[in-house]
């Protein structure tokens, strides 16, 4: 047995030919690291500003007078509060932008699509993840393949079908307009795929245990699987709702009665005009910005509340619209 040696000598490494030692190099690295960090933050702040400027201007312009908007200034100089009251009150009650009617139309369509769609998604994902039947994998592959096909292929025939069923007419009823908007979007293959992945992670033992207890597939699905998959279900619900709120192309094509427009369609076609002289009308950009704030605000509130669900869901490979 030898005694442990106590090393107390400090080593100073010298790089041959150069006049730097380890201490100097360490210091230099630290300085570089700090500079790098500063550059990183400066770049990030710059990019973030570019992302935020449109939001800032949208909100600020809705609190300006029309003259200020036309001057192209970034900061209002008049009383923001009275401008805000004026612009928003004129926008909300404008004949071409009946805000509360539009919200009602949009919410009814988006919520029906989302709720009925979610039930269909749950049933289908359950069949694809837990049940055994002939041709399961082939059918699932066919489902997935439809995601590759541009929606325009379907839209054309859906338009002619609906129009032959007299659902697309100039005097559409409320029910007809809503049906036309809801029906083609009830099934979403992407959400079926997302939920199937979640269902598959639930251990098979639970299913077998439920079988031993004499539980039917139906009650196992609703009592065990749905509660366990609730985070994914919330994500699907929110993403679907956002998609419904932002729907533009199909309603624009298929809803001819402007009383039943969803909000995006009305926003783009609204004539927010002021009578500046007798029989002379001018579009008010400040009112338009108030209308865009009113359209975007519910989404931003939803985003703030459900930020984690939305970002996690999209991060797991999401799609838009």
């Amino acid at each position: 047995m030898t005694n442990p040696v106590n090393v107390t000598t400090t080593l100073t490494l010298r790089i041959p030919g150069k006049k730097r030692n380890v201490e100097d190099t360490k210091k230099r690295d630290k300085v570089f690291k700090i500079i790098g960090l500063i550059v990183t933050y400066v770049l990030l702040v710059l990019f973030a500003l570019l992302i935020l400027v449109p939001f800032y201007y949208m909100i600020v312009a809705s609190m300006m007078t029309e003259d200020e908007v036309r001057e192209g200034i970034l900061f209002p100089t008049t009383d923001i509060f009275s401008n805000l009251v004026d612009n928003y009150s004129r926008t909300i009650n404008n004949p071409s932008f009946q805000y509360f009617d539009l919200v009602l139309n949009t919410l009814i369509v988006a919520l029906s699509t989302t709720c009925f769609g979610l039930i269909i998604t749950i049933l289908t994902a359950f069949a694809f993840s837990r049940l055994q039947f002939k041709g399961r994998d082939l059918l699932f592959t066919i489902f997935l393949a439809t995601m590759m096909i541009p929606g325009e292929m379907m839209v054309i025939t859906n338009y002619t079908t609906m129009s032959n069923l007299n659902l697309i007419t100039l005097n559409q009823s409320r029910m007809e307009a809503y049906l036309v908007m809801i029906l083609p979007f009830l099934v979403s293959v992407f959400y079926i795929y997302l939920l199937r992945q979640t269902f598959k992670q639930i251990p098979n033992e639970l299913y077998l245990a439920a079988k031993v207890d004499g539980k039917s597939d139906w009650s196992y699905l609703w009592k065990v699987m749905v509660p366990l998959a609730s985070p994914t279900l919330i994500t699907i619900f929110i993403l679907n709702l956002i998609g419904g709120w932002n729907a533009y192309v199909w309603p624009k094509t298929a809803v001819l009665n402007s009383d039943y427009y969803p909000i995006s369609v009305a926003l783009r076609s609204a004539a927010l005009q002021k009578e500046v002289m007798p029989d002379v009308y001018e579009t008010q950009s400040s009112w338009q910005m108030a209308a865009t704030v009113l359209t975007v605000l519910p989404l931003l509130i939803l985003f703030i509340i459900f930020r984690k669900y939305i970002m996690r869901g999209v991060g797991r490979a999401g799609i838009k619209g």
Partner: peptide
């Protein structure tokens, strides 16, 4: 930063398009 850079995803493409249209108008910002 993650949240800020995600913001445009949840907004309405039509609505923000109108904001861009105003920003880049002849007498715009």
């Amino acid at each position: 930063f993650q949240t800020i850079f995600f913001l445009p995803y949840v907004t309405n493409v039509i609505a923000v398009g109108m904001v861009f249209s105003l920003i880049f108008s002849t007498s715009g910002v």
